[in-house]
Simulated scan of single mutants.
Amino acid sequence: MINRAIQGKEPEVFEYFLNTSKGVRWYQARIALIDNDRHSVSISVRNITDRKALENSLISAKMEAERASLAKSEFLSSMSHEFKTPLNAIMGFAQLLEIDTEASLNEFQKQSVKEIYKAGNHLLDLINKVLDLAKIETGKFDVVIKPVEIKPVLEASINLVKPLADLKGIAITAAYSGCENYCVAADQIRLKQVLLNIFSNAIKYSFDNGMVESSCQEFDGWLRLSIIDSGLGIPLEEQGKIFDPFFRASNINHLIEGTGIGLPVARELIELMGGNLGFDSQEGKGSHFWFELPLVHAGSAERMTKWITY
């Protein structure tokens, strides 16, 4: 090391340890030429045992946290699968009771069966979202990236959530002109899932007879899709938690169905597709959620075959 410092004319810095009567001790040494003298060097050494102990404890804590997170995700995935089998049976029998013509139900029984099916469907939706989140966290979630035309996906998503909007008298407007002929690099199924999550939230947390607007904007090789609602908004002090799983803002009426998983899953999916998701919100005046995905040109089949599966 001394020879390297002399020959290279640059200081050599390295770490080493010694076994002492008090245990292992770590040191950091620095060897440097003295005033460019070809034969004289200075050597300084400092004890870094405490720093090494802290580094090792941080590494151990990080590894333990990662193991715990993996165990949690695997547990959620396993338990969610176990829940789905009996739940599907409950929902199936509820449907059989509803359509049984030989032993028809009275009005009270019909309403009860509808409530069973509604609750089961809500629980199934929760389980599916937990499964998605667990798969993403364990790295077992696949997305197929290829050019996807944004307008048809946006139209299909709006058509699916329109019945929910109609129940509250909410008008959905879409500025399709900003989305014409644009393709983004995305997984079409997952992109639709993200849109449905954001649109559903915008409708659920909007005031009756309100409005939900969507629009597209191109910039610097990206396409930004915005969804703006005239709803409850998110309290400023709680906006940093909005993407935490199972979090629901304090100003939300808890009679409104929701799990607090849709947004975390949506953000993870957008990031898996190489994009970004964000929002602006003002309590009592509504929210603006947006996501950005890379623009691509789908002019030839050859170009489309170059996209890969993650």
Rank of each mutant, 00 (worst) to 15 (best):
M211R: 15
G233P: 12
L123S: 08
A68W: 01
D35L: 05
I189M: 13
L232T: 12
S214G: 13
R224W: 00
S214T: 15
S226E: 07
G178T: 01
H81R: 10
I48F: 05
K204V: 05
E66G: 08
P235W: 11
L96T: 10
L87M: 04
A94I: 06
Q95I: 04
L160R: 07
V13P: 03
A5R: 12
E102Q: 09
A29V: 09
S80Y: 07
M91I: 08
D244R: 00
Y205Q: 13
H288F: 00
V41C: 09
N88Q: 10
I158G: 03
G286I: 05
S177L: 02
F17C: 08
L54M: 14
S287H: 05
G231F: 12
G231D: 06
S69P: 04
K129W: 03
L293I: 03
P86S: 01
Y176E: 12
V212I: 14
Q188I: 11
P264W: 02
S287N: 06
F141I: 00
Q217K: 11
I203D: 08
G92M: 03
F247L: 02
M1W: 14
G233D: 01
G275M: 03
F17Q: 15
A175E: 15
H122E: 12
G221V: 08
N47F: 12
C183S: 14
S177T: 13
R67L: 09
D100L: 04
G221W: 10
L269R: 05
D187G: 08
S78R: 15
I198Y: 01
E213H: 04
S177M: 04
K192H: 12
V113Q: 02
I145W: 05
R4T: 10
S215R: 15
A266K: 02
E55V: 06
G284F: 01
E271P: 00
L87N: 02
S104M: 04
N19L: 15
A174M: 00
E55I: 12
K204P: 11
R4Q: 14
L33N: 13
K9T: 13
D125R: 00
V24G: 02
S78W: 09
S112Q: 09
N201F: 11
F246D: 11
A186C: 13
E213Q: 06
W290H: 02
I242D: 00
T138D: 04
D187I: 09
R248G: 00
T49N: 11
P294W: 13
A61K: 13
L76G: 00
E74R: 12
A61G: 11
I99T: 14
N106W: 04
L87P: 00
A175I: 03
V296P: 09
